[in-house]
């Protein structure tokens, strides 16, 4: 499946639907899913079925429960890339600003540091104690620019707007 790059939702959904089409609902994905095992409300099979049957992507919020372990794809007898389909679904909901707060936080950190974790004073000290070299500096402006041209900043803004809307 093509990566989610082009800003055309309709084309995107039909792409996803086509990728899901070979599914014959055998359930081996769910049977192999570690999340489904402990939280049956998340079922990769049904996520795919929904797209094939209705041609629309139902944003339930549960699509974010995918741990991206790729076991479903490994075993799918029809070669359906379920994780990729779920990524596409999540991208579509992220475009509408529907994102779990923890991921927004992570994106914010990346936006300003280029990394997913702040190198704290403690880290620097521990690295020095261990005799580790200093980490090469990342040009934050470069990261900022990439996030901007790839639409990540827009998505973050939309998230903030959605948050402010009265529920």
């Amino acid at each position: 499946m093509r990566p989610v790059i082009w800003d055309d939702d309709e084309e995107r959904v039909s792409d996803v639907r086509q990728a899901a089409q070979p599914c014959f609902q055998c359930g081996v994905c769910a049977a192999s899913c570690p999340v489904f095992r402990v939280a049956p409300e998340f079922n990769p099979r049904i996520a795919v079925d929904e797209i094939v049957q209705t041609g629309t992507v139902a944003v339930t919020g549960r699509e974010w429960y995918c741990a991206y372990c790729l076991m479903c794809e490994q075993r799918c007898p029809m070669g359906v890339a379920l994780c990729e389909i779920l990524v596409a679904i999540k991208n579509l909901s992220a475009r509408d600003g529907k994102v779990p707060p923890s991921i927004v936080e992570m994106m914010d950190v990346i936006r300003f540091t280029g990394k997913v974790s702040h190198p704290s004073k403690g880290t620097t000290r521990r690295r020095r104690e261990l005799g580790l070299p200093e980490l090469p500096e990342v040009d934050a402006a470069e990261v900022q620019k990439l996030l901007e041209v790839t639409g990540a900043i827009d998505r973050l803004t939309r998230y903030r707007e959605a948050e402010c809307e009265p529920q």
Binding site: Y68, A94, I103
Partner: peptide
């Protein structure tokens, strides 16, 4: 920079 992280960042924006 961050690699970036394969699940959350890719799910947020695959393009990014």
């Amino acid at each position: 920079t961050c690699c970036p992280e394969p699940n959350s960042v890719q799910s947020f924006s695959q393009y990014t």
